[in-house]
Deep mutational scan, measured.
Amino acid sequence: MATKAVCVLKGDGPVQGIINFEQKESNGPVKVWGSIKGLTEGLHGFHVHEFGDNTAGCTSAGPHFNPLSRKHGGPKDEERHVGDLGNVTADKDGVADVSIEDSVISLSGDHCIIGRTLVVHEKADDLGKGGNEESTKTGNAGSRLACGVIGIAQ
């Protein structure tokens, strides 16, 4: 089992970053940390998408990683996509320092995120509470600013 993974985020604009993942036990939580720069100040949706395909930019990554066919939600919700990591918060300089621990994603097994795409979005994720159909699919997080395929790390 891989215990570490990394993702280099890039987009068409100024947004870029490096996100690290570490899972010490196969059924334990995954620590997610790193930094994203070039964002507007505020909240930005942060999700693992189904495919590791960036051939047409971030759009070819498909929908959120959702092997259990659930509705979109927040990272602490029972009803959520596996890939729903909530929001990252950018400061006035456009930098989001990421520090998350998640017990639904994994670096092995059915919820493995390796080979899938991590995406940072234009807007805040409403965590499935926006009151419309799009909220239950995407959290109304808007366009995909930057993305990268999650790969095994040393």
Rank of each mutant, 00 (worst) to 15 (best):
A2Q: 03
K4E: 09
K4Q: 08
K4I: 14
A5I: 02
C7D: 05
L9C: 02
D12L: 13
D12Y: 15
V15S: 06
Q16I: 07
N20H: 06
F21D: 03
Q23E: 05
K24T: 09
K24N: 14
K24Q: 10
S26C: 08
N27T: 04
N27H: 10
G28N: 15
P29Q: 14
K31E: 01
V32K: 02
S35W: 10
K37V: 09
G38C: 02
L39D: 04
L39H: 03
G42T: 01
G42Y: 00
H44Y: 15
H47Y: 08
V48F: 09
V48K: 00
V48H: 02
D53F: 10
T55L: 15
A56F: 12
A61R: 11
G62L: 09
H64M: 15
H64E: 02
F65Y: 12
F65V: 07
N66E: 06
P67K: 13
P67F: 00
L68I: 10
S69P: 05
K71G: 09
H72C: 03
K76C: 12
D77H: 08
E78Y: 11
E79I: 13
H81E: 05
H81L: 13
V82P: 04
L85E: 02
N87K: 04
V88P: 00
K92I: 09
K92M: 10
D93W: 12
G94L: 02
V95K: 10
A96V: 13
S99K: 14
S103C: 14
V104A: 10
V104P: 00
I105N: 07
L107N: 04
L107A: 01
L107R: 00
S108L: 10
S108K: 11
S108C: 11
G109Q: 01
G109K: 03
D110G: 10
H111D: 08
C112L: 01
V119H: 01
H121N: 12
D126P: 15
L127G: 12
L127W: 15
L127K: 12
G130A: 12
N132T: 14
E133G: 09
E134S: 04
E134Q: 11
T136W: 05
A141C: 15
S143F: 09
G148N: 02
G148W: 02
I150F: 02
I152W: 11
